[in-house]
Computed example of a mutant assay.
Amino acid sequence: MSLRPPSHLAGASAAEAAFDALGHEILAEKAAALGRAGQRVEETLARLRDNADEQLRPLLLKDAAEAVHGYFIQRELCGLRKHDAVIREYNIPKAVLARLGAK
């Protein structure tokens, strides 16, 4: 009995096949990192919305802005350049966006 390699690897050398596997691994890690960054945005925004203490607000705004900034950077690393939809989806407050330099 003989085995054939998958059709997408039939013409590829071993080095190309290994690079393709590495490329898939990198894409999977980018997606996982994007998910973790999104989770952090959700958590920091929830703390900001749920806390009524005015003395804590600047710290919570700073944490939320850092989380959103990291999320935007991770999105851009994944090739996603426009953030309008996620700003609406996460309902990111203007006070957080202002800390990022957005209008």
Rank of each mutant, 00 (worst) to 15 (best):
M1Q: 04
M1R: 12
S2G: 01
S2W: 00
P5D: 02
P6M: 03
P6H: 04
S7Q: 09
S7A: 10
H8V: 02
A10L: 07
G11I: 05
G11E: 04
A12H: 00
A12G: 05
S13G: 02
A18H: 04
G23S: 04
E25W: 08
I26G: 02
L27V: 08
K30Y: 08
A31P: 07
A32N: 05
A33K: 10
G35A: 06
R36S: 13
Q39E: 14
R40N: 10
V41C: 03
T44I: 01
L45T: 00
A46G: 14
R47N: 00
L48W: 03
R49I: 03
N51T: 01
A52W: 13
D53E: 06
L56D: 03
L56K: 08
R57M: 07
R57Q: 05
R57K: 01
P58D: 01
P58F: 02
L59E: 07
L60P: 01
L60N: 02
K62N: 09
K62M: 08
A67G: 09
V68F: 08
V68G: 07
G70R: 09
G70T: 12
I73S: 11
Q74D: 01
R75K: 07
K82I: 09
H83C: 13
H83T: 08
H83Q: 06
A85S: 12
V86M: 10
I87L: 11
I87Y: 07
R88Q: 12
R88E: 13
E89C: 15
E89W: 15
N91H: 11
K94H: 13
A95Q: 07
A95H: 04
V96S: 02
R99C: 09
R99Q: 14
G101S: 02
